[in-house]
Computed example of a mutant assay.
Amino acid sequence: MLTDFYTVETVAGQDEEYTCVIRLNPEHNVYKGHFPGMPVVPGVCMLRIVKECVSMVLNTPMRFQAINSCKFLSVVNPLEHGILTFAFSLGNTNRLQAIVSAGETTVLKLKATIVAE
């Protein structure tokens, strides 16, 4: 589904604190339906990217067991904000806290429990 939706620019982190910088593909087919003439990154796609970033840094497929809090604070137009920063921390009890930013604007705050698939 998200084939070619984004590319990972950088991954960094240590001591349970990580940052993934991704570049959105504004030409992806998702934007033809969401929404024509005014593309918006679907919230579910941002959640999927969070899950994939966590899976990448842990080197194992992960899934959300529970989402305790998920706040979408701003829409993301891939033509205006093609680069997103996914900053997240993982506690030893699989507690995930993530903040997604487009430039200086926070677009998503997430608290969840994540487990191996």
Results as ranks from 00 to 15, higher is better:
40 V>Q: 08
77 N>D: 01
46 M>R: 08
85 T>R: 14
1 M>P: 13
88 F>A: 06
83 I>T: 11
19 T>P: 04
101 S>R: 15
18 Y>N: 05
41 V>R: 06
11 V>P: 00
49 I>Y: 13
47 L>D: 01
7 T>R: 08
26 P>E: 13
11 V>Q: 06
84 L>M: 04
5 F>V: 12
94 N>Y: 03
69 S>Y: 15
33 G>C: 10
69 S>G: 04
67 I>P: 00
110 L>C: 09
47 L>E: 03
56 M>F: 04
72 F>V: 00
7 T>G: 10
26 P>I: 15
40 V>L: 04
93 T>M: 12
85 T>G: 00
95 R>M: 12
88 F>D: 09
43 G>V: 11
63 R>H: 00
38 M>A: 14
5 F>A: 03
46 M>Q: 02
114 I>H: 11
37 G>R: 11
90 L>N: 12
47 L>A: 08
113 T>I: 13
107 V>T: 14
112 A>N: 11
65 Q>M: 03
103 G>N: 08
17 E>R: 03
90 L>M: 03
59 N>I: 04
1 M>K: 03
48 R>N: 13
115 V>Q: 01
34 H>F: 14
96 L>C: 02
24 L>E: 11
104 E>R: 15
48 R>S: 08
75 V>L: 09
64 F>Y: 15
116 A>D: 02
114 I>K: 00
22 I>S: 08
84 L>E: 05
37 G>F: 13
21 V>G: 07
87 A>W: 00
20 C>S: 05
10 T>G: 03
66 A>F: 09
70 C>Y: 15
1 M>G: 10
68 N>D: 15
